[in-house]
Design a protein around this nucleic acid. Structure first.
Lengths: 235, 235
DNA sequence: AAAGATTTGTCCGTATGTATA
DNA sequence: CTATACATACGGACAAATCTT
């Protein structure tokens, strides 16, 4: 592991333990150089990483200050899958039913959305998520089969992202999200326990690999009262 | 301006102009060193910034590759105010009515949310946003008065963030957002044109200064069919 | 108010390691 | 195996912002 990563971990740990409390100043770069027997550039790289992750804030001429723990806890933005998201919340029963998992030929519309040629093989997966016994989320995934081969019902039952990253060894880079409310369709009413709610919240997700290939478009349809999205925006 | 920023701007411009098209490789660090008469570290810092902004992707041993224009256009995440957001969308009439702008004493609940002592002065602003003549958004802001002094109805009519950054000269660092659907309250029904819609989408926003001070909590209540949120998540 | 010390920001040059072609 | 390209690390110099004397 690179030296600056070790320094980063060491400092991050001190901050999380409280050895370096919020509002206090980090040792100066010169002091850290001596403590870790590293060059100034290496120490600076570690501190830059700490700032990137929201642990500290640098001020020219003043020093480096530890930010509040609260700011640090909010690092769980990024791409969050359904199961990841609910593990964080309170105790809930979560169950996934895979309704279908099939390879089909991309229509003109879908091909355009996924940036592939019409007729390209696409794997379509439809899943229902039950929380505490109620069917409240309906996920419809479309994967470019050539980029994400070997999908099965079994995999869809668990975490598809885990399969992509660990089994296929591909790295996910970024996702574009759109969140909006839409009138519930007939299919939504059939497959979800909507009670008398007339709308659903639709989260449209386009996900890209590190190399920039667009490999997925997913529509996630949520019952109004079971939807929540949390996020942190930096600038 | 620092040298690496100049190099960054120059390369970013070439990418946006198409002089460096997507999928192609950037000149190597050695070549850029000669072209810009800069050291390797300086060139690397510029390239790192390009990658941070989503223009390029670095690959050890291979080179630096320009990403698609589409990926680049999606840089407008971050903290987006109402008026900024609608300038981007199509042609719409947007009007803001300031219902109230008053300083009050923080209740126990509000004080806890804003991390201040109970009884601290808080400026409360309530605004209605009309799009194409329909009242569809209701914003309720709470600012810590000591941190954001001098707010008036006139300022609330325009952009409060612009006032904070330009007039007060303070830098906004990050915002925590929560998006969820809630049953419409009586006040929502009075002050918005909800027609028969029973729910609103509530965006709760907590905003922090660069120094880490929590200065604002805002609730933005949207009519279901006029809400849309777009965002890009990197990891 | 001015001078000096401290701390972070930028830039340079060099050397070596690691992944890829 | 060799060459290329990016990654890491070191050391030194000066600039800019801030704090102390």
């Amino acid at each position: 592991m690179p030296k600056y990563v070790n320094i980063y971990h060491e400092l991050a740990q001190r901050i999380q333990e409280g050895t370096l409390p919020a509002e206090t100043k980090l040792p100066s770069e010169t002091e850290l150089m001596h403590e870790f027997e590293a060059s100034r550039g290496t120490v600076r790289k570690a501190i830059d990483a700490l700032q990137e992750k929201g642990f500290v804030r640098k001020h020219q001429g003043k020093g480096v200050f530890v930010l509040s723990q609260e700011a640090i806890e909010f690092q769980f933005n990024g791409i969050v899958s359904f199961s990841e998201a609910h593990r964080r919340m309170g105790r809930h029963t979560v169950e996934t039913d895979v309704l279908s998992c099939e390879v089909l030929s991309a229509s003109a519309e879908l091909a355009s959305l996924l940036h592939v040629a019409q007729g390209t093989d696409v794997t379509r997966i439809e899943r229902i998520r039950q929380i505490d016994g109620e069917r409240v989320i309906r996920d419809i995934n479309h994967f470019v089969t050539a980029l994400v081969p070997g999908l099965t019902t079994d995999i869809a039952q668990g975490s598809i992202y885990q399969y992509i990253e660990e089994t296929l060894g591909r790295q996910i880079s970024y996702a574009k999200r759109k969140i909006e409310a839409r009138p519930a369709t007939m299919e939504d009413q059939e497959r979800l326990d909507l009670h008398d709610m007339t709308h659903v919240i639709v989260v449209t997700n386009d996900t890209y690999f590190y190399e920039g290939q667009h490999f997925e478009r997913t529509e996630s349809r949520h019952r109004l009262d079971k939807f929540q999205f949390t996020d942190i925006a930096r600038r």
